[in-house]
Write a protein that binds this DNA or RNA. Structure first.
Length: 684
DNA sequence: ATTAGGG
DNA sequence: CCCTAAT
């Protein structure tokens, strides 16, 4: 009797019978579920944006020329017609004029305005490409790296800030239609809207967009040439937010002709001298695409290389779904910034496109046309290093405006948002092969920038200009190995979505202190002055620091392999080693339930350990078994008592022998423990 | 959603 | 821990 009882309860070897059938999954209690993440946006920039907008009202950019037009890509000709009309109206309102030819010099492109569906009017500014910032720097020993940085900074600020900008838009179609608009472009904005067209950013959009049509809206910021243009009244409901770059791209499921920066013929002309040779090194974008060495031909135009290339390439890449960060925004750095050189392969080119921030300089061939080119002076004798920055990207922004906002106001809003960031001061970082050169005293020669052939890339990154921290590296430089978890770093992990599918925008969970601690890139730095802010405003801004942090992150050269932006997506969870007591509980549970029932194990012993998923438990068991099998000297981490390890081995042995899991084993088990099985069956 | 395994 | 295929 006693013996039988024991058998029933614990099985022959002290383990429960493997033959105990599990209730059908459908009726089993589902106690444990992965926490579902709520969608929704965190409009962390909202306050800032409002403030920024006020500041901007008094800024020079704000009062400067703002001739603007907005174009919506795709979705039909009729729509374009409507848009054109709208644009005309807007231009009239603004008193601006299209200066298709005159403002091309120093063009900068913006890319990536996205409207989000949840609020109806979230747009993101994704990229700024500084088309055509050319510099000269000497590789002579007297030239320092910081000189170069400053040079770049000055250039950028010149283009972005010192000159008034205007937003220009177009809906470039493949073909010849919008060349003039393209010519305009210094700054282009790409609006990549989500499929839900119900939200109307503009009246133009509203008027003609098919309900399910994904569309791209392009804005081009041009150096303003019309100081007489009236300044639109700034709306009070501007929202800025940062967003994942990939998300934008992923939502661009339709061909987008404007993803790539391009050179206008005018620009080429204007800078022929500086750029001589540079453009000849531009690799062919497509096999059938003739090289664009013939100057002002249209072959440089993006429509020659529509962005469906991106989609296509992305589709070729296995889609890696990354687990959403469950709770922690503090993570260990699990990877290095691998600033690979950018090759001219289509794939990599695309990656570069998607790369959030940085420009990379390239030498010789293999230079992606869309980013940077670097060229050493033909005259090597003079030791001059010629650098040409072709594009910079800005952090992604969300802009939220009301439905009744006019196109002109939208443009204005975008302009303000952009200039707020750009105008608040930028610092330029120099990277060589992905490694940030911090030593400003080094010469180009010493730092390797002046050397040519073996150097693949030189990059620049835009950083917020933080007065308090003159030159603090925001990001771990060249993080070669995982850092201790008590030394939180932010990881940029790529979130490539090859399918071009949009995926849920993850709202960053409560900003952790960590973000605040790393305020060098915080939004505070984006605001020129806080003197006008109320205390409340300031405190609110601080509370929102985490988002700008990400946004600033986007300003650096982020290797394609590990961009992230939102720490909650694609972010590795914080490592949480199992404690001995946890191991104990796990062992006990496995002894009772067996391997292969991790959900039950979870329910049994880790119900309250939210951070331990059944997968975690399974993994831990796996490592426990491994640990138990290796010599104690080889074990790492907190030592697990040997007796526990012995139990692990015993349980593993037992349960692998008596697979409770599946059917086929039933026979065998019955053969071994007929009495047990029968008893259980009878009991059931 | 779980399980099983590879990385 | 992550990522996925297979259930």
């Amino acid at each position: 009797m006693v013996l039988l009882k024991r058998t029933l309860d614990h099985g022959v070897n002290g383990y429960p019978s493997p033959a105990i059938p599990r209730a059908p999954r459908s009726i089993r209690k589902r106690g444990f579920r992965q926490k579902k993440r709520e969608g929704g946006q965190v409009c962390a920039f909202e306050l800032l944006a409002t403030v920024a907008g006020k500041l901007l009202e008094e800024s020079e950019c704000s009062s400067a020329s703002s001739s603007a037009a907005v174009g919506f890509d795709q979705c039909g000709i009729d729509k374009n017609a409507a848009i054109k009309k709208e644009l005309l109206d807007v231009d009239k309102t603004l008193g601006g004029e299209h200066d298709d030819q005159g403002s091309s010099e120093g063009s900068v492109f913006f890319s990536g305005l996205q409207r989000d569906t949840c609020k109806g009017k979230l747009e993101t500014v994704k990229e700024v490409t500084a088309d055509h910032v050319s510099l000269f720097a000497s590789s002579a020993c007297s030239e320092k790296v910081d000189c170069e940085s400053k040079l770049v900074t000055q250039k950028i600020n010149d283009v972005f800030v010192k000159h008034s900008c205007k937003i220009d838009g177009s809906s470039p179609k493949c073909g010849e239609s919008d060349d003039t608009n393209l010519d305009n472009g210094l700054i282009r904005k790409l609006l990549c809207t989500n499929g839900d067209a119900s939200g109307d950013i503009t009246t133009a959009n509203k008027s003609s967009a098919p309900a399910n049509c994904e569309e791209n809206v392009n804005l081009t910021l041009c150096r303003g040439s019309n100081p007489n243009a009236s300044s639109l009244k700034h709306g009070s409901d501007v929202k800025l937010n940062c967003k994942d770059d990939d998300e934008i791209l992923s939502r661009c499921s339709k061909p987008n002709n404007t993803m790539k920066a391009f050179r206008s013929p005018t620009c080429v002309e204007d800078h022929k001298l500086l750029m001589s040779g540079c453009w000849k090194t531009v690799p062919k974008l497509k096999d059938d695409e003739p090289s664009n060495t013939d100057g002002g031909s249209k072959q440089n135009y993006p429509c020659k290389r529509p962005s469906y290339e991106i989609d296509r390439s992305q589709r070729n890449t296995p889609f890696k779904k990354r687990r959403l960060l469950e709770r922690s925004s503090v993570v260990t750095y699990d990877g290095g910034i691998s600033c690979e050189s950018v090759s001219n392969s289509p794939e990599k080119e695309i990656d570069v496109e998607k790369n959030l921030s940085a420009g990379k300089l390239h030498e010789g061939k293999g230079m992606p046309s869309s980013v940077f080119c670097r060229q050493k002076s033909c005259n090597s004798r003079n030791s001059q290093v010629r650098l040409s920055i072709k594009s910079f990207k800005v952090p992604e922004l969300f802009i939220e405006v009301s439905e009744s906002t006019t196109v002109g106001s939208l443009k204005k809003t975008v302009l303000e948002a952009v200039t707020t960031i750009l105008g608040s001061g930028l610092r330029v970082g120099v990277l060589l092969q992905g490694k940030k050169i911090r030593d400003d005293s080094r010469t180009l020669l010493q730092s390797g920038i002046a050397q040519s052939d073996d150097m693949d890339t030189v990059g620049f990154m835009l950083e917020p200009n933080s007065p308090s921290q003159p030159s603090p590296p925001i990001y771990p430089e060249e993080p070669p190995s995982p850092l201790p978890c008590d030394s939180p770093k932010f990881v940029n992990r790529s979130q490539v979505n090859p399918n071009g599918d949009s995926f849920a925008i993850k709202t960053p969970e409560k900003p952790s202190i960590t973000y605040s601690n790393r305020s060098s890139g915080s939004i505070k730095d984006l605001v020129p002055s806080t003197t006008e802010l109320t205390d409340k405003t300031v405190s609110n801004s601080k509370a929102l620091v985490s988002v700008p942090e990400e946004s600033m992150e986007a300003l650096t050269v982020v290797p394609m392999s590990q961009r992230s932006k939102r720490p909650d997506i694609g972010q590795r969870r914080t490592r949480r080693p199992f404690s001995v007591s946890e191991v104990e509980a796990l062992v006990r549970a496995v002894e009772k339930l067996g391997t292969g029932r991790w959900r039950d194990v979870k329910l049994c012993s880790f119900e309250n350990a939210k951070h331990r998923t059944y997968v975690d438990l399974k993994d831990k068991w796996k490592t426990l078994v491994h640990t138990a099998r290796i010599s104690p000297q080889q074990r790492r981490g907190e030592p697990v008592p040997q007796d526990l390890l012995d139990r692990v081995l015993a349980a593993q042995s037992y349960w692998s022998e008596h697979q409770a899991k599946q059917h086929g084993k039933q026979q065998q088990q019955q053969g071994i423990f007929p009495k047990l099985t029968d008893s259980v069956a009878g009991k059931a």
